[in-house]
Amino acid sequence: MQKPLIEAKNLTVRYTIGGGLLTKAVFLNAVDDISISIDKGNFFGLVGESGSGKTTLGRALLRAAPISDGTVTYDDGEVHYDLRNLSKPELKEYRKRAQLIFQDPYAALSPRMTVRDIIAEPLEVMGLTRTRDDTDARVREIAAKCRLNLEHLRRFPHAFSGGQRQRISIARALVSGPRFIVADESVAALDVSIQADVLNLLKSIQQEMGISFLFISHDLSVVAHVCDHVAVMYLGQLVETAPTRDLFARPRHPYTSALISAIPPLDPDAPTNIEKLEGEIPSPTNPPSGCKFHTRCRFARDLCKKDIPKLRAMGKERFVACHFAEEFDFSRKLAASEPAGA
């Protein structure tokens, strides 16, 4: 089998809160013992409620959050890195190969730089081009991919709408030739009529350039449409991961199922929120014992309060962390699966 592009094993990101003169230090595992692997060219979705640790996991994979325990390896065929032990030159090289697209295209672009300079900056900082002509040529090539024209390059970000700004952010992320991009809520701030355009652009980048994406989103419908593979997080842990269609057609973890059920359907007559999830996500400084989801799970039993469920294989490419996953059938009906023509 093909080697994954990025692979985390038992990854933990731990933060310390307090610990001053008068307060006792509290530890918080924002990412708690997560193992995950993303294949080359894969569009990998990461979902969960706010506070579940999605952003921290994304940052740890970029070496932008501290890796407290476990390992993360990156292997694109040309280089092989152990992200916990990177030399300075290696980290510099990794910055070219792994990039981030932010949520808010209004905050992410400097208002004092022209679009050309915004896109060119990584090239200059990383020393990827030697002459100004090289830089300009590279900027134009990437801008064209993101459907920005020469006229756009001379202007400042304030002249652009949210969708156009996000295309500029994407161009900036692409210009160093990355193999891995973390897109953190990259369409959340966009209007629906614009959002589809940016999603289609990200998909075409994945397909034409073979770049792998970690697509972090709280919007399950968006994830369902663009991702090949989805992982669901709860309080810093992975509860389920599976190919997109399998996950949405038949969730195996009660949390995945409840999350899907909470999305208001577009059909006014469709039954809604059948698996009501009571309460809110508990504080990560004081997580529940055993299965972290047991306080909100309607199927929880004594075992769930005591034992932490291991993430275990269930069928093709699916992993579930639930003691009783075999007993549940959360199958949902999806419209016309594969093109029925055959």
Binding site: S161, S193, H225, K333, A335, A336
Partner: peptide
């Protein structure tokens, strides 16, 4: 119509997302 066809629908994962062309 444009708004509805730009909207990702959970019931139909294969549907293509069609953006409304241009910007507001």
């Amino acid at each position: 119509r444009g708004l509805l066809s730009a909207l990702p629908k959970l019931e139909d994962l294969e549907a293509k997302l069609t953006p409304v062309p241009g910007d507001i």
